[in-house]
Amino acid sequence: MSPRIEIDGHPATAAELGHFALGNYGHFTAMQVREGRTRGLDLHLARLDAAQRELFGEGLDPALVRSRIRHALGETRDASVRVTGFWPEGAAEPSLLVSVRPPADTPRSPQSLRTAPYQRPVAHVKHLGGFGQSYYGRVARRAGFDDALLVGPGGVVSEGAITNLGCHDGTSVVWPDAPALNGVTMLLLERDLPGEGVPSRRGPVRVDDLPSYASVFVTNSHGVAAVDRVDDLRLPVDEEFMKTVRRTYESVPWDVI
């Protein structure tokens, strides 16, 4: 499957894509689509609308977003989809870019993370221009890790380069309360895990404390994966708990786009 890119409902032209060669001001959301459906569609739409208002001063019609996604998908049923809001220079209004790429699978093996002294600016917005995340992610992978873990002063964890981090203390899941993006998968688990008897809370999480948790895991649009190593720290993996987390996430209904 070749990647497909549309802007405002038509195939992107070279001139239109030139905007991204000259600037990177904008926001996006990324989702996995299966059979024309995605999990947490309302959260994706709310994210896009909130970011559009913050960056450009006006909201996004959810019906328009869904229409643009459907048009870009065409006959494709399974895909990785990214919706980007941006304002081309000289244009009278913002534009929507929708990219369609092959679907991504959930990692099944435990992940290893390398800490990086970095926190995203304007972390609550899923914005363009993530050089720091990309840089530290590449550094981590070159060193033999799966990805980077972004850490602030005092070893306080905020988020992964492209993930959220959850820590199970044996009773509840602790999500870092440092500046971070509220990921859609994280929000779905935060909502639904209490139904499995696993409440969630926000609190400080420090790197040195990670081995004391019963299980640590990461979440993003690809799904959920355990973490068994951060730098030189070996972390326990509670397989029964991870089964609960995966079962909870996989039970989330797929919304028709």
Rank of each mutant, 00 (worst) to 15 (best):
W254F: 14
E16C: 09
L189D: 02
L45D: 03
A180N: 00
S80C: 12
D209H: 04
F56L: 14
A104K: 13
L55H: 08
A143L: 08
Q52A: 15
R202G: 04
F28S: 12
V245T: 07
P236L: 05
E75L: 13
H168Y: 15
E240V: 08
S99R: 06
A143K: 03
V33W: 02
N220S: 09
V139Y: 02
P11E: 09
R206C: 01
R77L: 13
L188E: 05
E190D: 07
P3S: 14
R39N: 11
D49A: 14
R138M: 13
F145W: 05
V151T: 10
A21N: 09
F20R: 05
H71P: 01
D208L: 09
D231R: 10
V252C: 13
Q52M: 13
T115D: 02
P179H: 08
E240F: 06
P3I: 08
D42V: 06
I257S: 11
D208K: 12
S80F: 15
I7R: 04
F56D: 05
T115K: 00
A63N: 06
V65W: 01
G152Q: 07
P11H: 12
A161T: 15
R82L: 11
G74I: 10
L233Y: 10
T76V: 15
C167S: 09
L43Q: 08
R34S: 12
K243N: 14
E58K: 10
G152D: 11
R108T: 12
R34A: 14
Q32V: 05
S67L: 12
D209F: 00
V173C: 03
P88H: 03
H222Q: 14
T76S: 10
P62Y: 00
V224P: 10
F241Q: 12
R4M: 09
P88D: 10
A46F: 00
P107R: 01
F241N: 07
L181Q: 02
A79C: 10
V252G: 04
T106I: 03
D105G: 00
E75A: 15
V157L: 11
M1C: 09
E240I: 03
V205G: 08
D238A: 13
A225G: 01
P88T: 11
H19K: 08
D8Y: 10
L41D: 06
S112T: 14
S200Y: 00
V245P: 02
E54G: 07
G132V: 13
L188F: 05
H27E: 06
A12L: 08
V245E: 04
G18W: 03
S251M: 11
S215C: 13
E35L: 11
V173I: 07
N24F: 13
N182D: 10
V98W: 04
A79D: 12
R138P: 04
Y135G: 06
F217W: 06
L181N: 02
V227W: 00
D42Q: 12
L60Y: 01
S221E: 09
L73V: 12
F86W: 00
H127N: 06
D169K: 06
H222S: 15
V205R: 01
I7C: 02
R114M: 14
P121Y: 00
G170E: 11
D78K: 09
D208H: 01
R114A: 13
G129F: 04
G129R: 01
H222Y: 03
P211C: 06
P107I: 02
H27W: 07
K243Q: 15
R37C: 14
H71T: 15
G223K: 04
H168T: 03
T219Q: 10
